[in-house]
Amino acid sequence: MSGEKLSLKDLARKRDLLAPGHRLCAGCGAAIVARLVMKATRGPTIVACATGCLEVATTIFPYTAWRVPWIHSAFENVASTASGIEAGLKALKRAGKLKYDHVDVIAFGGDGATYDIGFQAISGAFERGHDILYVLYDNEAYMNTGIQRSGGTPKYASTTTSPAGKVIPGKLELKKPISHIMVAHRIPYVATASPAYPLDLMRKVRRGLEVEGPAFIHILAPCPRGWRFDPRYTIEMARLAVQTCVFPLWEAENGKYKLTGVSRSIARNPKMKKPVEEYLKRQGRFRHLFTPENRHLVDEIQKIVDEEWNWLLKMCQLS
């Protein structure tokens, strides 16, 4: 089943399912991501949330910002909680006890919950084939606890547990290629998205809900506090990440990779690709790279980004 055509004009009039009054930081990327994801829902929906910024700041008791049924259980188990929700709904439907024809199940996890502590639960849920949409809002560190490094933190970013010191220039390890790992699970739909491109993001969410079986959408969620930039630039960061190919936009339906949006345009017209420096220099977490002795690290990052981009082009058979 292919869904209705989504347009910004129509979606702008759709009531937000994440209400205002939540207490995420001013300019929070995760808040934009969650709003956009919920805008793209198509009917009865239940949301499960992993522990993290989104969870704590939207449900400070006795308040809640969620206009859909919502559950938070723990940090590492949102995929298994969602598995239980999906299985429960399936069983209730079979027994004739469900009043809906179908209920969509969305799981939200941050990078900590997804790359690290909850990785096993996601892998299990995807192997079992539960019909859930898992949304990774990736702010690239444990922001909720104060900017500690995660498996999703990019190389050389300074965090409170991978600080740029006199000897060590921030995180030494690469960002885990989480979405490709999810493609390797042979699930029907995997995509990346950026809040700078809302229509692309919402179309992917809708597609993720439409496919039968697990879907995974990896959405970059710039964090003004953790990345050290002025809150007004959240969308700019999300856009630069795509324009520099640090965070390309693609989707893989049944394992078949395809670039989307601006990334597709860059593939066709490589001149559009901006140098990573334009992205890095705007963020305090990379400030230490812009000294004469660390300059080569920027070059190294550029090399890594180029290699990964070329690999992706190959996967999309565009090179």
Binding site: A19, P20, G21, R23, A26, T58, F61, Y63, T64, A65
Partner: peptide, 14 residues
């Protein structure tokens, strides 16, 4: 939870 977040005004953060 028994209150909607709308009852919590965040405008004074501005």
């Amino acid at each position: 939870a028994f209150k909607p977040s709308e009852e919590y005004k965040t405008g004074d953060w501005r």
